[in-house]
Design a protein around this nucleic acid. Structure first.
Lengths: 234, 234
DNA sequence: ACGCCAAACTTGACGCCGTTAAGATAACGC
DNA sequence: GCGTTATCTTAACGGCGTCAAGTTTGGCGT
């Protein structure tokens, strides 16, 4: 059995960068974060342990590249979901939340690297841009659901960077639910709940169904709710 | 500089188990999941690399012990918060959600080990009990907030283990927000948002304030909402 | 067509890692 | 006080990430 990812013809691999990324995701999916090693990925790509250094610098560089792809996945799938959901506010927001979960489920390796607190390259500009863009889509859709105006720089600037966003609470609310459910599901926190009739599908249906109803209701209610005392309650 | 945790008097350490756990949490807090090694912890405890084996078996055993403490922290602090919040339904639920975040912030090392998808010991009974108990408190309080009856076995049995819980959607909703926000905050996903006036405190205040208002409103609304089609919507 | 340069990859080595086996030490029950 | 047993050390193994140095090769200028 030869499970190398991207066979090579001669001394040079041809597309080692891509092969390493694919191998890494396979390993991550198979053995989890713990069993993940650079040497193992290199082995699967049919290459020596030191070969990847030229493409990624080091292990952190590889993980950073994968994380960037993870954020790109999120942006892409969320935009696609929005396009399919049409113009109505609530459907759009629910659509991106479901897309978020779908991405996590489809590529748990990438997703975990993007969010999983393995160390990533600190100043990486590609990573930063990809993350801000994905976050920006979520910001934009939350604002649209609230019936608020959306600046043209949502996808390139953080909301806070132009001085305190009025909708930050709603944004964090939506993101927390979405991210919380997604991570718990792929990280096995909900595994005991998957052991019963319906299994994982029931949980996903619950998320796409009742949880989205609750989320939309909460956001709509928040739009009508007075801001009492915006930042001191507990 | 000597930063050993739990100095030893002679050949025997005295309480190596405790010292290792403390050292591990310090290392985890200092260097994150990536820089965490068993040898480093042993070094800080002033002990040879092989010493911990007798107490924990291996690295996974140590992590499992720490994770168990993490769940115990959650149970303890959530119960304390509930006791202080008194009898009113909404306050109690908000109180445990805030306690959840407080535990994550106070001991991010434990919290990350408990939830972070480093591998833990599979069949560990202590870990399982601790996790179910913490989850049970959340289940209990969500049901109370909904005005529903709570079985006496909430803290020892999973809701699903007695055949499909009617309040599962609300439970997952509350847990997703709480867990999502907590993990994003301690894992640095919200770091860019902390870089502005108000910083982390502002986000925490937003969580304890507006987000809790939204959460309670959503749960209350859900209690009144018809169950349309409980498990098939998207 | 040819030579050369830079990119791509290998080899070998280093120090650190987790784990194990065998031996040293000390606490404790009898 | 003595043996038993838990605790800890030492030494070693293979595997890890990374680096320096050497080898191969594609491609470009001429």
């Amino acid at each position: 059995m030869d499970d190398r990812v991207g066979k090579r013809a001669g001394y040079h691999h041809g597309d080692l960068r891509q092969a390493m990324i694919e191998a890494a995701e396979v390993v991550l999916a198979e053995k989890g974060v713990g069993g993940f090693t650079l040497r193992e990925c290199a082995r699967r790509a049919g290459v020596s342990p030191a070969a990847p250094a030229h493409h990624f610098g080091n292990l952190v560089g590889l993980l950073t590249a994968i994380a960037t792809l993870g954020f790109d996945d999120l942006s892409q799938e969320m935009e696609a979901a929005v396009a399919k959901a049409g113009a109505s506010g609530g459907n759009r927001l629910a659509a991106i939340c479901e897309a978020y979960l779908a991405v996590a489920l489809a590529r748990p390796g990438r997703f975990r690297v993007a969010f999983g607190r393995l160390g990533l390259k600190n100043g990486d500009e590609d990573l930063r841009r990809a993350a801000i863009r994905a976050f920006g889509i979520l910001v934009r859709e939350t604002k649209l659901a609230l019936g608020h105006e959306v600046g043209s720089d949502v996808l390139t600037r953080l909301p806070s960077s132009y001085g305190g966003d009025a909708d930050l609470a709603e944004i964090l609310f939506v993101w927390s639910i979405t991210h919380g459910f997604s991570t718990m599901l792929i990280d096995g926190q909900l595994a005991p709940l998957e052991m019963q009739p319906g299994g994982r599908e029931r949980l996903i249906a619950l998320y796409s169904g009742r949880l989205m109803e609750m989320l939309l209701a909460a956001v709509r209610a928040s739009a009508a709710m007075p801001l009492a005392n915006p930042a001191s309650h507990g």
